[in-house]
């Protein structure tokens, strides 16, 4: 939009974004606080980062969380991509509205509901809670996010590419791997990243489905926060925040660079006929 930004718009942006970012910035700043007390500044120190690394329980939780995140994100990406293909490419079939309902409902469903219902399933199936139950629970709700992302990527992309491949003698499965997959790959990667993050961040669903040996990082953090919190929690939170931020910014910068390069090449092509 070309209209000049009004003072009202600028103010609402500045106030809005300060509201969004200030608490996080404060949290990061206080991870470098020397004092034990999380709220009174008493000098710069990185000792909580060191403490965090030596906290064996915390590191164990990190390891479990990463393992769950990696497996569930990967599985969720596969399932979510399949579901996106079903929704975007398979037209109508018996039970389609139930299917799309099961994709969209977990996006808004309160986590306590998802957590409780899954743990009751696992108990009814006589499954011990642990790595696998959390992994399956995370896969189930994060695959829906993957589906939404991949589906929108699929709907952007020109169907005639697939038809052209088939027209040139390429059977459907091969068409998927040769043509469709390279086109929707950015969506799939974004979906994986989101699924991984959701798994990494989840407290509620993991709490319901965790066993005695599988305390995840958010569960540890929650326990500490309930006890009053320590700068160590600020430190690990800072690292998580920075990891996410770097990941998201890197991904978007890469896609943007690619787009800019492409636009530049298109401009060149048009100039030199």
């Amino acid at each position: 939009m070309l209209s000049r930004p009004s003072w009202f718009n600028i103010t609402s942006l500045v106030v809005g974004f300060s509201f969004l970012y200030l608490p996080i910035v404060i949290l990061i700043v206080f991870s470098f606080n020397d004092a034990q007390l999380a709220t009174v500044w008493s000098g710069f120190s990185t000792r909580w980062y060191g403490g965090m690394l030596q906290n064996e329980q915390l590191m164990q939780a990190v390891w479990i969380t990463l393992r769950i995140g990696l497996t569930s994100a990967t599985l969720a990406t596969v399932l979510g991509t399949l579901a996106a293909l079903v929704l975007a490419r398979q037209g109508r079939f018996f039970g389609r509205s139930l299917f799309s309902g099961m994709i969209y409902a977990p996006l808004v469903m309160p986590e306590v509901i998802l957590g409780l219902s899954l743990v009751l399933l696992f108990v009814a199936m006589d499954q011990n809670q642990g790595f696998w139950t959390i992994m399956i629970a995370h896969t189930t709700f994060s695959m829906c996010y993957v589906t939404v992302i991949v589906q929108s990527r699929l709907s952007e992309f020109d169907r005639s590419l697939e038809e052209a491949a088939m027209d040139l003698g390429c059977p459907p499965v091969r068409t998927f791997f040769h043509i469709t997959l390279p086109q929707i790959l950015p969506g799939i990667l974004a979906g994986w990243m989101l699924a991984f993050t959701l798994s990494l961040n989840d407290l509620v669903i993991a709490s319901f489905n965790a066993g005695p040996e599988t305390t995840t990082l958010p569960m540890r953090i929650y326990g500490q926060v309930k006890l009053g919190g320590t700068p160590e929690i600020n430190a690990i939170s800072t690292i998580l925040i920075l990891l996410m931020t770097v990941g998201v910014i890197l991904a978007s910068v890469l896609t943007k660079r690619q787009r800019l390069k492409r636009m530049e090449e298109e401009r060149l092509a048009a100039a030199h006929l």
Binding site: D158, S160, L161, E163, A164, A165, M166, D167, L168, G169, C170, P171, P172, I179, P182, Q183
Partner: peptide, 30 residues
């Protein structure tokens, strides 16, 4: 007979050139 087994080829309105392949690769695809 599925499209990939029909002895005819189509030129699409959008051209449907595979964006991730070079001109050579596109022509060689079939």
């Amino acid at each position: 007979v599925p499209p990939y087994k029909r002895p005819m080829n189509m030129m699409f309105q959008s051209y449907a050139l595979f964006p991730h392949m070079s001109v050579t690769k596109n022509i060689a695809f079939g």
